[in-house]
Design a protein around this nucleic acid. Structure first.
Lengths: 155, 155
DNA sequence: TGCTTGGTTCTTTATTTGCAGAACCAAAAA
DNA sequence: TTTTTGGTTCTGCAAATAAAGAACCAAGCA
C-alpha cells in the first residue's frame, strides 16, 4: 500500500518548498502543496498523501479542504473508484500570483488616506510619503503592462 | 504627560494600517509602525508610544527593538535629553519594497530545482511548471527595469 | 442487511505567540 | 550618595494554532 516512495532529494525539496509555502499556508497544507509539485505521480489519493507525509487523517482532511477552497489544488475521480485523486492546480497559481502582485493596491489607498489627514506642518515627511505612494501607484499601473508583455512574448 | 491625542480618524487609520502591517510584523510592532505614519507628531518617545497605544513597557521595548533591527524605524536624540525619539524610516521602506519584490527569486530557483528532478513522463505538467517558472524569471528581470523607469520619471 | 471504504467532525493536547507585570539596571540628576 | 529616568530582561500566563486520535457517517459492496 505504501508503494509510492519519495527519494531523499524529493523529501528535501518538499521541506524546502514547504517552508516557502508556509508564507500564507499552515505547515500541513504547505507540505501537501509542495508534495503535489515534487512527486513523480501527480495525482495522489488521500491516503497516499497521508502516508507520504505522515499526517493524521484529520490533518490531511483539513489541509486538503483548505487547499481546495483556495483553489490551489483540485481533484479528479476515476470511474469505478470512490477515491479522489488530488493534484496541483498550476493554472490557477498564475492567477493567484497576479492578484498577489496587485494586492498592495489596498496598501497605497490606505497610505493615501494617511497622507490626506496629515498636517501641513510636516511638509518634508508628507512629501516623502507622497513619493512612496506615487511609487506604489506607478507599480500598480505598470505591472499589468508587464503581464501583457509576458503574454505577447509567449507567442 | 498624555498631551498628544489621536483623533478618532487617526485611531481608525492606525487600526487599518496596523492590520496591513501584520503581514510580516507582530501586532504591537505593526501598530507602532502605523502610529509613526499617522501621528501629527512624527518623533515620539517610548512613553508616548506606550501610552498612545496602551502597551506595556516590555511590549513597547520589544516591538521598538524589532522595528529598529528591521530598520523600519530609527531614532534621534536631542541634546540634554536622555529620551530617544522614534520615527518612521520612510526611505528605507522603499528599499524594503524592492527587496520584497525580488524576494521570490528564491521561489523560482527552488521551483527550477523541482522541475529538474521531475520525470520526463509528466510532460504536460512539466511544461506548465516551466512556463510558470519562466514567468517568475521574466518578472524578476523586468521589475528592476521598472524601478529604473521610476527613478528616471522622477527627474 | 450488515461490513468496508473514504473520508469528516469532534475532542483533547502540545506548542507557539504576544503580551503584561515586576524585577532589574545603567546613566544622569539631585 | 541616593534618587530618578528611560528603558531592558525575566517570569509567567492567556489565547491562538496545529495537529493527533477517536468517534462518526454516508455511499457502495458483499
Amino acid at each position: 500500500m505504501d508503494s509510492i516512495k519519495l527519494s531523499d532529494k524529493q523529501l528535501a525539496l518538499i521541506e524546502k518548498l514547504g517552508l516557502i509555502f508556509e508564507n500564507g499556508l499552515q505547515p500541513a497544507s504547505a507540505r501537501i502543496a509542495a508534495l503535489l509539485l515534487v512527486s513523480d505521480k501527480l495525482e495522489l489519493t488521500f491516503d497516499e498523501i497521508r502516508e507520504l507525509l505522515n499526517l493524521s487523517k484529520s490533518a490531511t482532511s483539513n489541509a486538503l479542504n483548505l487547499l481546495l477552497s483556495m483553489e490551489r489544488i483540485e481533484y479528479i475521480t476515476k470511474p469505478g473508484d470512490r477515491k479522489r485523486y488530488f493534484k496541483s492546480n498550476l493554472s490557477d497559481w498564475k492567477e493567484n500570483m497576479k492578484t498577489k502582485f496587485l494586492e498592495f493596491d489596498k496598501v497605497h489607498k490606505t497610505m493615501r488616506e494617511v497622507l490626506d489627514q496629515r498636517p501641513h506642518s510636516t511638509k518634508d515627511f508628507n512629501q516623502g510619503l507622497e513619493e512612496f505612494i506615487n511609487f506604489m501607484e506607478f507599480m500598480n499601473r505598470e505591472i499589468p503592462v508587464l503581464f501583457k508583455k509576458w503574454e505577447l512574448s509567449k507567442k
